[in-house]
């Protein structure tokens, strides 16, 4: 099985770190993974994105021409990457940021979670990406939640480890949403 995922949103929404977390967890599960960020001026402008591949087999090109899943954390990303998704793929979006009207217009299958709203309720909008990952795990069973937890411990600097229990709470909320 191979998942090709694009994760896009505003800089600061944690789209790059969400991708890193997924591939790290994938690596911990013994899968082949790659992560490629958009780089250059785009990093500073508005939208950032990364290409993520999690596969049972060796990864070919780390650069995607199409994706199975587009995770869109804001409206510009939804507009830009809607057609990037294969016909049998789906879009996962933050419904706090993308209107239901917009979602109703696309022919692609769409899953949603109001990640940013929920994250603010939990006390920090930076957790929005964790809600999204939770929802992704619910839809695809691509990775085990324990792997995400272990990855968080490995990826985050120690001084931020106190946040992990809250992030895991957000992950579980995403999983059961």
């Amino acid at each position: 099985m191979q998942y090709e995922i694009i994760i896009a949103g505003f800089g600061g929404q944690g789209v790059l770190s969400a991708g890193r977390l997924l591939v790290y967890a994938g690596m911990l599960e013994g899968k082949h993974v790659s992560w490629l960020p958009s780089y250059g001026p785009e990093m500073r402008g508005g939208t950032a994105n990364c290409h993520v591949i999690i596969s049972d087999e060796e990864v070919g090109s780390p650069i995607l021409n199409f994706a199975d899943i587009a995770i869109c954390m804001n409206l510009p990303s939804f507009d830009k990457f809607e057609t990037f998704v294969r016909d049998d793929g789906f879009i996962l979006c933050d419904t706090s940021m993308v209107s239901s009207e917009k979602i109703s217009e696309t022919k692609r299958k769409v899953y949603g979670i109001d990640a940013t709203t929920k994250a603010i309720e939990l006390g920090n909008k930076a957790f929005a990406n964790i809600f999204i990952i939770g929802k992704l795990l619910q839809i695809t069973k691509i990775l085990r939640p324990e792997s995400i937890e272990k990855a968080l411990y490995d990826v985050l600097p120690e001084k931020k480890h106190y946040l992990i229990p809250i992030e895991m709470e957000a992950l579980k909320m995403g999983l059961s949403n």
């Binding site: 490629l36 090109s61 780390p62 650069i63």
Partner: peptide, 8 residues
């Protein structure tokens, strides 16, 4: 892409 990508 090889410079920018992450891999194990």
């Amino acid at each position: 892409s090889m410079g920018q990508m992450m891999e194990a």
